[in-house]
Simulated assay, not measured.
Amino acid sequence: MATSQPTQFLRRSFIKTVLRRLIALITVVGLIYGLVAVVYATKTIFKVKMNYAVVLERFGGVRQAVTEVGWHARLPYFTRIEQEVPLMNQTMQLGGTPAPMRIISKGNVALWTSGVLTYRIRDLHTWAIENLTPLELLQGDYDGIVKDILQAQQIDRLVSDRETIKEAIFTALKSRPINIGGPTIEKKYGVEVVSFVLKETRFGDKLVEASEEKKRRELIAEADNYAADQEASRIRKLYAAYLTGIQNLQTALGRKDGATDTALLQFLTQQKWATAYEKHQAGQNTVVIQNTQGSTPAITLPAFDADHRPEEGDNGQTAD
């Protein structure tokens, strides 16, 4: 009985020792983890990734670019990380948003357009140290140059000659000074302009509707003009045929002095004769004139291409 009590005491003491050590170990690990977390959160130790750079601002306002890939340490409270700069290709939307931007063409016509600039930072000192908020400054210069070129074009070129305009904008962004005697975009910001894409140039919805209505009216007018031309051509042909018929008839029935009877002229002016000639131009020998008075019988006329004249009697009258 006396032996069991010391054994139980030793066991309890051993368990308490293990628990104390385990709690101490957990506490130490927690403190170390918390310290590391605080250091990492404050970026006292920071990492420079591949194709990235970090700009540090040291005590006294000195700014320094760190480009070496790997882990780096800085003094807390005496330095701060100002910005992390990607050195890869980056894009910038026209107007700062993917949505189309409204411009006014040279002919005072509203147009919607959008574009994308691709650039890469080449001189980190120029980009991040010589310029305050370089992204905002670059966006303003970029939008200004593109608008100047687009709004100086006629509306038809903006829609149908986009390739030429796109190349002109790219050349201006890459090598044209922002102002006369001033720096280019590449020199001012230490970047390389890689490419420019003019994504779309289109009319507004109301202007599209107006253009379609105008085109529809032009097509209708063109169809009307074509129909009028066809009618005029038909009338000219009919008139020529009518004159030919009169000449042939006068030759066949006229007098030696070229005179023609009044009744014959009245007959020739009737509209039914012209209609009959139009419908039966080949081999027509008989023409029936509508009798509106009830007294004039049907008349049979010789062919228009008659090659002989009727015989005349002694008294100058036409032979039966």
Rank of each mutant, 00 (worst) to 15 (best):
T126Q: 14
A152T: 06
L19T: 11
R58P: 03
R63F: 05
K187F: 05
E278L: 08
I185S: 00
I235T: 15
F170V: 08
D148F: 07
P98R: 12
N51K: 14
I103R: 03
L56R: 05
P100E: 09
K16T: 13
P177Y: 07
Y77W: 13
Y226C: 06
A53G: 10
L301S: 00
V287T: 06
G294Q: 03
G182N: 01
A168D: 15
A240Q: 12
T67R: 04
N108M: 07
A172Y: 03
I104P: 00
A99K: 09
K166Y: 03
K187R: 09
D205H: 08
R162G: 08
D229A: 15
A282N: 12
T275A: 10
E312H: 10
N291E: 04
Q5V: 15
S175Q: 10
L207C: 00
R236W: 08
V208A: 09
E136Q: 14
L207E: 13
P297L: 07
M101R: 08
E163H: 07
A298M: 06
D161N: 11
G60Y: 04
R102H: 10
P310L: 04
G107L: 11
K106W: 02
I104Y: 03
I15T: 05
Q153R: 12
T244W: 06
V288Q: 02
M92F: 01
D229K: 14
R63N: 04
Q317V: 05
